[in-house]
Computed example of a mutant assay.
Amino acid sequence: MLRSPAWQTLANYESQDLVRLRFHARFKRGLSAEGAREVRSSVSQARSYFESAATADRTVRPLLLYYGCLGLARSLVMFLRGVRESTLAGSHGLQTGNWTSVFAQAKPDIGNIMASTLTGGAFAEFVNATANTSLLTHNSSLPNFAYTHPPVPTGTPILLDDILSRLPELGAQYTRWRGLPKFCPVDELRAQEPTTDIWISQKLHGFTIDRQFIEAFFTTSSPIFQSDQNNQIWYKSSTKSSDLPPFWDHRNHAFGAVGDLVLLKDFGGAQLSKPAAVLALAYILGMLVRYFPSKWMSLVRNEIGDAGLPTILLAIEYVDEWFPQLVLEHFERDLIGL
């Protein structure tokens, strides 16, 4: 039985009566018994997938986790939009791309396998229902900062490395594999109309980062440099979200899951919310197990390209632990004041 705090709270969404009460409390309208039953059934099935994954061999675990994530994503879409499961798309909303050519290489680089977004499907429904929004923690153990990313264009390519390099919780392992990741830590952020001040740490997993590294992240915004001192670089921006660089957060269990913001490099001109990126990560790893089992088994047996294995194994643990929490926060966004 799953006993994490997230699953303990998600258990309330396995009760048809409690789903109807929460829906009414949040949206001030009723949800039919059949609609509530479909939400709680999807949550219950997702929990079963996660429970099975907890004891499964690593040769199949990512696939079970993906279907658990998909169940949670579908339940959230039904709850937020008040729609029935019969109206949901039957497709994943993502498709694999260059995998055959990557694995045909003598030394395949698993970080280069790619998925791309489709017009419809479960991924697009999840992104749209959550408004592509990251609910972030900054010097807090609960989300206290909502960042809404722009819509995700159809056909957006997402490399496995694109996600692994941006998840701060994987940063220490990723740096050993590929060098500097595609995020940098925000020491402090102060927003007071009409400006936002951002102080960025120059220390990142043993590296010292400079303005050139940081300002490469400002592809959709133009914060103004203020000063560079005490291992911090200070920028000033307007408070409009369109003028701010994209943000995710880093939640650190060593500090009671208190989180800090990170500045993020976009996905080649597109942006994904953190929940959407983790769902895409689960999809890529799940489909790798499903459609290229020999390559996956060679990887986990340290036979090919195993430099990335520690990062990927940590990514699997991250999906298992954090995707339920990220979904729960969107279920209960009204209760945390965002």
Results as ranks from 00 to 15, higher is better:
I214L: 08
F255T: 14
Y235E: 02
L244Y: 03
F213G: 14
E215V: 13
S242D: 09
R251Y: 07
W248D: 02
K236L: 04
S237C: 04
S238N: 04
L244P: 02
G256A: 10
N230M: 06
N230E: 10
Q226I: 14
D243G: 00
F225M: 08
D243K: 01
P246S: 04
F247G: 03
P245S: 05
D228T: 08
H253E: 10
D228F: 11
S222Y: 05
F255V: 13
P245H: 03
F255R: 13
D228Y: 12
Y235N: 02
H250K: 07
E215N: 13
I233E: 01
F218T: 12
F255P: 00
F217T: 06
S242W: 01
F218W: 11
P223S: 09
A216P: 06
Q232G: 03
E215S: 15
P223T: 09
F247P: 01
N252H: 09
P223Q: 08
N231R: 13
W248C: 03
I224L: 10
F218R: 11
S222Q: 14
N252F: 07
H250W: 04
Q212A: 14
I224T: 13
A257G: 05
P246T: 01
F213W: 15
W234C: 01
A254E: 15
A216I: 06
T219W: 03
K236M: 05
E215Y: 11
F247M: 03
H250F: 06
D228Q: 13
K236Y: 00
Q226F: 05
T219P: 07
L244N: 01
N252D: 15
S242K: 07
I214P: 03
H250P: 00
S242M: 05
I214T: 13
D249S: 04
D243F: 00
F218I: 11
Q229V: 14
S227V: 08
Q232K: 14
D228C: 07
F218S: 13
S222I: 05
D243M: 00
K236E: 06
A216G: 13
N231K: 12
F213A: 14
H253V: 05
T219L: 10
R251G: 06
W234A: 02
A216D: 15
S238E: 04
F255G: 07
W234I: 02
S238H: 04
H250Q: 07
Q229K: 15
Q232Y: 06
S227I: 06
N231H: 12
A257H: 12
A254S: 14
N231T: 08
T239E: 06
Y235C: 02
I233C: 04
I214V: 15
K240F: 00
A216T: 14
D228L: 09
A257M: 13
D243R: 00
T219A: 12
L244V: 05
S222K: 14
